[in-house]
Each structure stands twice: as C-alpha cells, then as structure tokens.
Computed example of a mutant assay.
Amino acid sequence: MISLIIYEIATGRVARQITVLDEYERDQNLREGEAYLLGSVNPATCYVKNGEVKAYPEKPQAHLSFDFAAEAWVDARDAATIARDLDEVKESAMAEVNAQIGRARQRVITALPGQDMIYLRKEAEARAYLAASNPVLADYPMISAEVGVTAETAYQVAQVWIYMSQSWQALAASLEAIRLTAANAIAAASSAEAIADALAAFEAALSAASGPTPV
C-alpha cells in the first residue's frame, strides 16, 4: 500500500490523503490541477510549498483565510461583510453584558414577580414609621409582619429596610455605570479584539462590585 498526499498545484492546499495499491490506481485518483507527494498528513493542518509539506501557522481568528502565496492568515472579507460580522460580535457582547448585569442584580435582590413593588412599599413604610412621632404598629402591616423575623423590634425592621434600600440604590448606580461604560466601549470598538478588551474590562469592574444580602 502506498500513502499519498494529494494537493492542488496552484495553491499547495492539501486536498486529501489517500492510500493506493499501485501507480495505476494513483493516476486514477489524481484530478486535473493536482499533484502528489509520498507520505501521510492531516489535510486540515498542512499544506505543500515547493514540494515540501509545511504546517499551517496558528490561526489567530476564526474568520481568517490562508494566503498560500504569502503563507499567512489574511482577512479576505469585503467591507460589507466585515461591518456585518463586527455588528454581530457587538450584539453578542452586549447580550453578555446585560446577562451578567442581570445576574449581579439578582444576587442582591429577590427575583420574584412583583418583588420590586414590595421593596418600594417596604421603603415607603419604613420612612413613614421612622418619621412618625408615635407610630402605631397596626398602621404599618409590612413592618408588623417582619417583627421577630427580620429584626426584633419595629424600629429595627424599619432601619434594616432603609439600610437595604440605600445599599441597593448605591449598587444599582454602580452596576448601571459599569453597564453603560461597557456599552459605550463596545459600540465604539472597531475590531473584535477591541470588543474582547471591552468585555474583559467590564468583567473586571463587575467582579469588584458587591452588595448586601437581599431581604
């Protein structure tokens, strides 16, 4: 059995790897514009230059094509395709930013239907309770329900809620600033590498953010 590397004469691209019994079978497998070398290679990782098998250099980006004359990876896309591909990368990056921001928010709030309204009602009731001269607990049903659960007294429950509200507002402002900074950087990016840098900066800023435990 004879192992043959079949390649395109014009480019050097390895078309296929075959095994034949003899020269007749070899010639039957050669197509117009093709030549062969003895040996065995993986067509996906090698090409032929001046009769020598060479390994492709590392491919830095998925969209690049190999220029056999220059023996290098090049961007063969037209301007319209480049712009469209960049827009798709930006869209994917923004989706990732929004998803991570959403998860960061959910780490400090309870994500249930209507829970945001509950938080607003708690804050309003806590402020009203603390502002009252002689508050009657029965007038503050949400505080009353959490006495002995969130804290031991109504005053302490109200204080906890005010603290949580202030902490959440500070964190929400921080997260929104991080999100908008990333969005602006991604929108202004002119390459996939710049988008990757924007995402890396976003993730570093997000990892530094922290917040209170949801109540």
Score class of each variant (00 low, 15 high):
97 V>H: 04
110 T>D: 02
71 E>R: 09
119 Y>W: 13
43 P>M: 14
7 Y>L: 10
69 A>R: 09
211 G>K: 08
184 N>T: 08
75 D>R: 03
202 F>A: 00
85 D>F: 11
192 A>C: 05
64 L>Q: 07
69 A>Q: 15
9 I>R: 10
56 Y>H: 08
58 E>A: 15
176 E>V: 04
48 V>E: 13
179 R>M: 03
114 G>T: 12
137 L>K: 07
22 D>S: 08
54 K>H: 07
100 Q>A: 12
61 Q>F: 15
72 A>N: 14
124 A>C: 01
64 L>W: 11
111 A>H: 03
159 Q>Y: 00
103 R>F: 05
211 G>E: 11
84 R>Y: 07
52 E>C: 08
129 Y>T: 00
135 P>C: 04
21 L>F: 01
109 I>W: 00
183 A>K: 12
210 S>Q: 00
202 F>E: 07
119 Y>V: 12
212 P>W: 06
84 R>D: 15
122 K>S: 02
54 K>A: 15
91 E>Q: 14
90 K>L: 14
174 S>C: 01
118 I>Q: 09
152 E>P: 02
144 S>M: 06
135 P>A: 13
49 K>I: 13
94 M>C: 10
175 L>W: 06
111 A>C: 14
65 S>A: 13
196 A>T: 15
133 S>I: 13
30 L>C: 15
145 A>F: 08
215 V>F: 11
69 A>W: 00
141 P>M: 02
64 L>N: 00
110 T>G: 05
153 T>C: 12
26 R>C: 10
112 L>E: 15
28 Q>P: 02
87 D>L: 10
153 T>H: 11
88 E>C: 02
78 D>K: 11
42 N>R: 14
187 A>Q: 05
168 W>Q: 12
141 P>D: 01
140 Y>L: 06
73 W>C: 04
55 A>T: 11
214 P>R: 01
180 L>H: 03
131 A>T: 09
145 A>C: 07
112 L>P: 00
24 Y>K: 13
94 M>S: 04
141 P>R: 04
37 L>Y: 14
169 Q>R: 10
168 W>N: 03
170 A>V: 09
209 A>S: 15
53 V>N: 12
115 Q>K: 01
175 L>V: 05
66 F>K: 12
107 R>H: 03
23 E>G: 09
12 G>W: 06
26 R>D: 14
190 S>F: 02
81 T>E: 14
27 D>K: 12
138 A>I: 14
83 A>P: 11
107 R>G: 11
157 V>C: 00
70 A>K: 09
57 P>E: 06
76 A>P: 03
11 T>I: 01
213 T>W: 04
47 Y>T: 04
114 G>W: 06
23 E>M: 05
83 A>W: 05
190 S>N: 10
